[in-house]
């Protein structure tokens, strides 16, 4: 309940300031436009659109998800949060906020891909949906803890993608594989190993984040 209250505060604050939503919307719009312009009338393969989808998702996450902690640091309100809640409450609240942002953002990107790229055709939608859900959870958890780590650094903009790349790489590679399977029409059972890797990644990142956050949060 306390975490939900923190999420509610962040969401209302976001609606007033539009720190993350505007950055994300602009990034998605610009990136997809650039891809469309560069492709022109060329016909691109299914697999390539799958790859492009996760590239856009990865870089969109880089542009907007760090705001959860960076905005607190920029407004000097980090200490205020430290004074009103336990670290686990703060992390959970920020994670719920990033989960919502990731799901909204990735849903919008996927819909745009389906509408704008005719070659982005999914034969097994259930498999794509499963990878989409667990992938989004992984992206949100990793981005939240990385945002907490970099929020106190002086060059946040550079550090965020640099730190995120090795942490998110196994997740993105697994998601690329699963998207390819979904395009080929593979069954969920046949993709069990990749789905298990995805779930393990989420569980490991979530556990590690809760264990680490206490140390990151306190100066």
């Amino acid at each position: 309940m306390k975490s939900y209250s923190l999420f509610k505060k962040d969401w209302l604050s976001e609606l007033r300031t539009r720190y993350a939503v505007n950055a994300l919307a602009m990034f998605i719009l610009v990136t997809i436009s650039v891809i469309l312009f560069s492709i022109g009338s060329e016909k691109i393969s299914e697999y390539l659109t799958g790859g492009l989808l996760w590239i856009v998702i990865f870089f969109s996450a880089m542009s907007g998800l760090s705001r959860a902690f960076v905005s607190e640091e920029e407004r000097n309100t980090t200490m205020t949060l430290q004074l009103i809640a336990a670290p686990s409450t703060i992390f959970s609240g920020k994670l719920i906020f990033n989960l919502l942002l990731v799901f909204l953002m990735n849903f919008a990107i996927t819909i745009l891909f389906i509408v704008l790229f005719p070659s982005f055709a999914l034969k097994n939608f259930l498999l794509f949906f499963i990878s989409f859900v667990f992938g989004n959870i992984g992206i949100a958890v990793s981005s939240t803890i990385i945002a907490a780590i970099i929020s106190k650094a002086s060059s946040k903009g550079t550090l965020y993608p640099v730190l995120s790349f090795p942490i998110l790489l196994p997740l993105i590679l697994t998601l690329l594989e699963l998207t390819k399977f979904a395009m080929d029409g593979n069954s969920v059972e046949a993709s069990f190993v990749e789905i298990a890797v995805l779930i393990c990644y989420d569980v490991i990142m979530l556990t590690a984040s809760y264990l680490l956050f206490d140390f990151i949060w306190k100066e």
Binding site: K2, S5, L6, L12, T89, G93
Partner: peptide, 16 residues
């Protein structure tokens, strides 16, 4: 971006 009252309401809720 919040008023004084909104700030304090949020803080009370976060404190539980």
């Amino acid at each position: 971006e919040f008023s004084a009252e909104e700030n304090l309401i949020h803080f009370s809720n976060i404190r539980g």
